[in-house]
Design a protein around this nucleic acid. Structure first.
Length: 270
DNA sequence: CTGGTCACCTGGAAGC
DNA sequence: TGCTTCCAGGTGACCA
């Protein structure tokens, strides 16, 4: 369920409530998500103070004095703050208990991850290979232009490659390309600097707006307090196959790229 | 390196 | 109603 904006909203939602507090206990109800959960998870974190929560791409880094708990929400994960008395439901796999509050991970598909890092997080294999942050200054038209020279892959595929740029998932990739008026199938190496000068800001805007909306365009995004996203951000194209483009009123088309659905307007995106 | 495919897993919706 | 098929927000592993 989460792309970068949802992960960032989750971070902002939970951090004020648990940062500075110590873990009372950890309850893990299954042995593994995508990877095995940390061994002796409870012993590892009990009594440890959570110093801060940072985000890198779609990963959350829970910073304890003794190391970092790396959390990824995969396709279907959510983190919520719930009262200690609230019984766990199906797919509630991990609880970090802080005083009267539990940070509860729910993840039906179990593509998410919780991994303990006790060295330098930057050099951990899951983090060291990540690309740059799309909301950073380094992410720019000239950077996009430079890294795509001679690349034949479709621009949408490149945008979604987390080893180049992090956090741009399937929905916001389609939406950003629509905003920039670029055909998602265009070979990345054939796109001009001028067009990247539309695309880079379009990506930043799309992500920033989603964060600012504090919800998202995602159908079933769940906030850390359990409330649902607000749908304030209307998708221009995502999920709208056959419906009319909000700009030109011609039908939105869906294609498959790399086994993922891509939505675009053939008239507005060239 | 690049570009393409597969696997991991569950549940909801659509089709018959 | 019930069975089958397809689809979903991600990403590492593997192949040529």
């Amino acid at each position: 369920m989460p792309e970068l904006p949802e992960v960032e909203i989750t971070r902002r939602g939970i951090a004020p409530n648990i940062v500075g507090q110590h873990v009372i206990t950890v309850v893990a109800r299954i042995p593994a998500l995508r990877y095995p959960l940390p061994v002796r998870f409870d012993k590892l974190l009990s009594g440890k103070v959570l110093r801060k929560i940072e985000r890198r791409g779609k990963y959350l880094l829970f910073d304890f004095d003794t190391g970092v708990l790396l959390v990824h929400l995969g396709m279907s994960g959510s983190l919520r703050l719930v009262p200690v008395a609230l019984p766990a439901q199906k797919h509630d796999h991990v609880d970090l208990v802080f005083g009267q509050t539990i940070l509860r991970l729910r993840d039906p598909r179990r593509f998410g991850a919780m991994v303990w890092i006790d060295g330098d997080p930057e050099s951990h294999p899951l983090l060291s290979t990540l690309g740059i942050e799309p909301l950073s200054e380094a992410f720019s038209a000239s950077w996009l232009f430079a890294i795509t020279r001679k690349r034949k892959a479709a621009i949408k595929i490149v945008l979604m490659d987390s080893h180049r740029v992090v956090g741009v998932g399937n929905i916001y990739a389609s939406e950003s390309l629509f905003r920039a008026g670029i055909d998602p199938r265009s070979p990345a190496g054939k796109i001009s600097l001028k067009r990247y000068e539309r695309l880079a800001p379009a990506i930043k805007e799309t992500l920033s707006l989603a964060i600012a909306a504090g919800g998202s365009s995602l159908r079933d995004f769940v906030h850390s307090d359990g409330s649902l996203g607000y749908f304030q951000l209307q998708a221009f194209v995502y999920g709208r196959e056959g419906e009319l483009c909000r700009i030109c009123e011609r039908p939105v088309r869906m294609i498959r790229q790399g086994q993922r659905a891509t939505f675009y307007c053939p008239h507005c995106q060239r």
